[in-house]
């Protein structure tokens, strides 16, 4: 079986100040702190009668860059919504930075930054007003936010709806990072971006990750991006976690003889990979 996942995730590509998660040999994957930023246990969620997430377990180590990958419709966005308290699970336990998002959404979002797949800022709001609102709500000087936006050539007088898709994503990221969150949640933020916009966004993200201890959880079905950004990966398939664990361990292990792409695609087996989660998680521990 040929390896389709190349190691584009060279540690050299990542900032030297990254936590131990990148410097360790796939042993200490808790980002060096041993803490867990996100813990999901037996989480089940449905849209009406249609099951979306079915009894999933997930641990996101603090300081890690955790990618949740899967094909369209496997529940990545729903998982993000649940993590942010935008929806409530039907069953199971969910803890984000020690809080239940369904119960403590307002407190939780003070410590996290979120960029959703589709921009949600009002199209008629100017970037200046968005900066002012974010600054007031998150106790951040408005000038700081404006500087962030200006650095990426985002015109403060423009209305959000007038921006390109890439610019909207950049605005979303900068506003999400404005409050210095401990956890950054990105729901496929690069979807639909052109090459330049995508590169800029990745650059901004890597820069932020390099500057401080930030846990990042992002969803994607772009494995190249996963290879570039992630330290940990969870593969969602059929509403369940097909595999999860440190990326390097997952790349090395191949205990079941399948590549990440194959796991993602579900080839070779219809059910979640038996033991892979164990094996990879075990490899991480």
């Amino acid at each position: 079986m040929s390896r389709t996942i190349e190691s584009g995730i060279e540690p050299a590509n990542l900032p030297a100040t990254r936590p131990a998660v990148f410097s360790a040999e796939g042993v200490d994957r808790d980002g060096g702190s041993g803490e867990t930023a996100v813990r999901v246990s037996g989480l089940t969620f449905r849209y009406g009668r249609r099951p979306v997430l079915d009894d999933i377990d997930l641990d996101v180590p603090a300081g890690s860059s955790y990618a949740v990958v899967g094909r369209n419709g496997v529940g990545k966005t729903s998982l993000v919504h649940l993590l942010c308290g935008l929806r409530s699970p039907e069953r199971g336990e969910l803890t984000v930075l020690g809080r239940d998002p369904a119960l403590h959404r307002a407190q939780l979002v003070e410590e996290i930054g979120v960029v959703l797949e589709r921009p949600t800022a009002p199209p008629d709001a100017t970037l200046a007003s968005l900066a002012r609102l974010t600054g007031t709500l998150r106790d951040v000087p408005v000038d700081t936010i404006c500087s962030r936006l200006a650095r990426w050539d985002l015109p403060l007088g423009s209305r959000f709806g007038e921006l390109s898709r890439g610019q909207q994503g950049q605005v979303g990221l900068q506003l999400a990072l404005a409050g210095a969150p401990r956890l950054l949640v990105l729901d496929d933020p690069f979807l639909g971006l052109d090459v330049v916009a995508r590169a800029e966004l990745v650059e901004a993200l890597i820069e932020e990750m390099a500057q401080r201890d930030l846990t990042v959880l992002f969803t994607s079905h772009d494995l190249d991006l996963v290879h570039r950004l992630a330290t940990h990966v969870a593969v969602l398939r059929g509403g369940r976690v097909a595999a999860s664990g440190p990326l390097d361990a997952m790349l090395r292990a191949e205990s079941d003889g399948r590549s990440l792409e194959e796991i993602l695609a579900g080839s070779g087996a219809d059910e979640p990979v038996a033991g892979s989660q164990h094996a990879m998680t075990g490899g991480g521990t």
Binding site: C84, R105, V109, E110, L116, R118, T120, A121, R138
Partner: peptide, 13 residues
């Protein structure tokens, strides 16, 4: 889903 913009702010719902 656009209500998420305000729901993701530290505000009482």
């Amino acid at each position: 889903g656009r209500l998420a913009f305000l729901l993701l702010q530290p505000l009482p719902a």
